[in-house]
Design a protein around this nucleic acid. Sequence first.
DNA 1: AATGAATGAGTATTCATTCAT
DNA 2: AATGAATGAATACTCATTCAT
Lengths: 222, 222, 222, 222
Amino acid sequence: MSPTSSSSPAKRERRKEARPGELLEAALDLFVEKGFAATRVDEVAARAGVSKGTLFLYFPSKEELFKAVVRENIAGRFIEWNSEVETFEGSTAELLHYCYRVWWERVGSTKASGITKLMLSEAQNFPEITQFYQQEVILPGQQLIRRILQRGIDRGEFRAVPLDYAIYVVLAPMMFLMMWKHSLGACAQGALDIDPDRYLATQADVIAYGLATRPGSTGLSA
Amino acid sequence: MSPTSSSSPAKRERRKEARPGELLEAALDLFVEKGFAATRVDEVAARAGVSKGTLFLYFPSKEELFKAVVRENIAGRFIEWNSEVETFEGSTAELLHYCYRVWWERVGSTKASGITKLMLSEAQNFPEITQFYQQEVILPGQQLIRRILQRGIDRGEFRAVPLDYAIYVVLAPMMFLMMWKHSLGACAQGALDIDPDRYLATQADVIAYGLATRPGSTGLSA
Amino acid sequence: MSPTSSSSPAKRERRKEARPGELLEAALDLFVEKGFAATRVDEVAARAGVSKGTLFLYFPSKEELFKAVVRENIAGRFIEWNSEVETFEGSTAELLHYCYRVWWERVGSTKASGITKLMLSEAQNFPEITQFYQQEVILPGQQLIRRILQRGIDRGEFRAVPLDYAIYVVLAPMMFLMMWKHSLGACAQGALDIDPDRYLATQADVIAYGLATRPGSTGLSA
Amino acid sequence: MSPTSSSSPAKRERRKEARPGELLEAALDLFVEKGFAATRVDEVAARAGVSKGTLFLYFPSKEELFKAVVRENIAGRFIEWNSEVETFEGSTAELLHYCYRVWWERVGSTKASGITKLMLSEAQNFPEITQFYQQEVILPGQQLIRRILQRGIDRGEFRAVPLDYAIYVVLAPMMFLMMWKHSLGACAQGALDIDPDRYLATQADVIAYGLATRPGSTGLSA
DNA sequence: AATGAATGAGTATTCATTCAT
DNA sequence: AATGAATGAATACTCATTCAT
């Protein structure tokens, strides 16, 4: 055993610990791109730079790998965001614009957005993980949006729209953008290409304007 | 109706002509429910009441069956709609509400909506059919929406928003509803259940209001 | 029923009776070209201008069709030939040349030669029909050749070679030519193309010369 | 032999390297016995003592397995033979006998002879591999025979026969024997049984004699 | 007699999963 | 821990054969 060959044991150690993460990353990419069924575990392993056997060392099955990918990428960012919303100073219209922008930076533009595509695409085949996703992502997300809208109403900026459905006015554009980006948008031939910033700005503009009370209005419309 | 005229064209004959349709219907159901890969051709055949061999008599492969399902369910409804939009009398806000309602009746609430879910889920795996879908559905749909918005602007009802992005303000809520309905919505646990009518009414309301010129406004905002 | 439509019932009648023959002909072509397994009954039917169902009206199975093809094309031409050999006037070397030439005309160059290719190719899969082929073709053929050689020996023209193996000296070139013609020869790229007349003439020449007694020889060599 | 040196390279490892060979051997047997189509890949795998999946680990398809079988069994034996012919001492008639004998030992009597049967039977269905076979086997073989005949002519032993067709005088008996052995001969009922040695001896005898110049002959006959 | 729609047993091939090394 | 050879259950697709018309 030559002394040179034993160099950098740290690197090896680090890689070893990084294995699951590398696998999850590779799996996320491929699941998002091709769907659950069309993704081969060999491919995931290959992209992560390990053998197929190694993958099963860390994840007992392809399904568990899928679940792990989803769980891993559903970080509970909502606590942080909730406090940001609480402390935000400025109009609620501005808050909405801000949230869209921040969401795009932290989620929409990242691989995490692929998870939404995955979930919506595969929900039917994975009821268990779908349930989990609802609890961890959808419901907190809806709560956050609801809080924003409530803030607008409370401050007399927004009309007293029915919140249960108004949340979807805010949510739909985000979900749509994520789906689009990972499906048709990925095959974009010019016409279908969407610039996220302009897209979100336009959506926020129309929505904020559409929710806004009017000068002279009581802020208590239908 | 004379008994000798044998108005029924022989059971076998009639079935033969009905076969492709029956198969497409069964395939639509299953593809939407389980996705492309998870759908077995035997199952499609069984649901259509024929044997596996018969399916391949009408469709040379599972992939061609998929393509046929997509094609079948996007018959050029746009021509009809275009003329409806041209002749509509009333405010553009009303037109928007009307379109959402009609779209739901004719597409959103039907199995055809499953096609969109399918396409968004499987787009990457079927570039050819995705291309076809863009040409036949997405682009005509965008044109129609663009026409509606233009009408509002021309009549001084809507602000001169940038159409290229405003169309998504109208489109996103529809796409979202279809995806939702066929994914999370199908596993709905109360909290996630969406009433389409209220959903669409709220969306149309906010959007129309958000696009509207204001009393005293020039109708030429950014 | 217009009188013109009932024209030429004879033609129809004739065709009806010709069906099995047309099917056998088509089957022969295809079996020879592609082998038993690779030939589809649809193709046979199509080439014969009838439906697949009709084929099974005349032949209870693909195997039976195969057997019928073989049987049909193994006409007992040997009686005729035997008498020709008996009455032939001229040297036995000339008789050999004559036989090769006649064989080529009547068998080698016709579709019947395909049967040999078929039999040799498929013998293992059809023991029953192979047995039949041996009785009807191989043995009579060997007898005929034996008679020719015996004639040469009897007349002092040929050496007294061991007949049991000398027959193959005459047989091998014919069998080889048939196989070649229907296999490699059919994909011929120039180098492999064989002109049957020159081929057979050369073979007959060498064989006759090789069997011939020499001047001063006793005609009774090993 | 120290116990720690573990000279046996681990059972699994050794088997792995042997796999392709075992599979090719099993495939050769079965292809020759039953033809390409009638051979099931499961059977090949079973005979090689592995599972169906393993076969596809080494050969991407049944067709590629077939090609590999052909390639494997036609290793360039011709180089060796060519030099043997060059250095042979003795008459060309003796050389012919010698070649027939050696050919039988090294090819005719081995499984390799089955390849020729295979090729002639399946040529039409595998144009690509047929092409390969022509280049690698047929043409070199013809060259070798041509060289032998040329030797006889050059040494004044053989008549100046047209080589392009005389080669078939030598080739046909070999091809015939291989075909016979693997078809009718395999179902031999006594009458059709051929003793290769006597068969080849007779052929060589007649051919050599038939090609020979005669005492007093010029060696330049047509 | 003729058709051709329907069948379903049969086969090549794939791929998640196992396990000896 | 890591490998990668081996597995075999699962599945799309074929094609000889049947049979109602």
